[in-house]
């Protein structure tokens, strides 16, 4: 069935599009991939320590957790025009500065999963870490990072999937007549949609699905399996 669908799609596209289109979609995909990786990494560096700090303080976590979940549900694209205005005003490069919009709405998945992980960290292990006076880097490396890892993977996986989708609205952002574009698979799909160019929409979407699936297979799944095997607390 699915194989037949692939054959159908390829046949349909080959009638209207050439290899040039495929190359364009794939190079856009590579660029968007690079953005996703960099942004998830940056968001992790920021939110993991903050999430750990919050999660280990139940009183704070109780207040912040609903807020993080609200932010994850908040339609981030409502804020995009502000970014457009700021980029135009400062003359910054859209290729770089439109990118953060991709994680604007999805970074919160990392935050609230890390908070959940740190809150669930077993108290006997906390006590052991304290009795043996594990501090600073030893504590991060041997105690808390492995402890929250399964939660972090869940959050980062969700965030990265969401960021791919967000790229469609983030890489082509507009406010009034101002239109900014960052070359990538997201803007490729967005432009095709705007133009009602059905074959390119199909091609772009197919390439994005392929990238997301391969990315999950190559990175997140192995991390998941590793977390399950090694980091599980039982």
């Amino acid at each position: 069935m699915s194989l037949w669908g692939v054959v159908e799609t390829v046949f349909y596209l080959s009638q209207t599009l050439g290899w040039g289109d495929v190359v364009e979609a794939f190079s856009g995909g590579l660029l968007t991939l690079a953005r996703v990786i960099v942004l998830i990494a940056v968001a992790s560096v920021i939110w993991v320590p903050i999430g750990v700090w919050i999660g280990l303080r139940p009183a704070v976590a109780e207040r912040v957790q609903p807020l993080a979940q609200f932010l994850a549900a908040f339609p981030a694209n409502v804020l995009f025009p502000f970014a457009v205005i700021a980029i135009v005003a400062t003359g910054a490069s859209p290729s770089i500065w439109l990118s953060p919009l991709m994680v604007l709405g999805t970074q919160w998945y990392i935050l609230f999963n890390v908070i959940a992980g740190a809150s669930a960290f077993p108290s006997d292990l906390k006590e052991a870490a304290s009795v043996f006076r594990l501090r600073s880097w030893t504590w991060w490396r041997s105690v808390i990072l492995p402890g929250i890892f399964p939660y972090y993977v869940t959050g980062a996986l969700t965030a990265s999937g969401g960021s791919w989708n967000a790229s469609i609205v983030a890489e082509l952002a507009s406010w009034g007549n101002t239109k900014l574009e960052a070359f990538g698979l997201g803007s490729y799909i967005a432009k095709a949609t705007e133009a009602g160019d059905f074959p390119r929409v199909v091609l772009g979407t197919a390439v994005m699905s392929l990238f997301v699936t391969l990315f999950n297979r190559a990175l997140w799944r192995p991390l998941y399996v590793f977390a399950e095997r090694r980091m599980r607390l039982d």
Partner: peptide, 22 residues
């Protein structure tokens, strides 16, 4: 500890070495 409180992601040797590292 009653519950042993070993870090499941560290080997036996790493668990024992941890306090010394600190």
């Amino acid at each position: 500890f009653q519950s042993f409180a070993l870090f499941p992601w560290l080997t036996l040797l790493q668990n024992v070495e941890l306090g010394l590292e600190a």
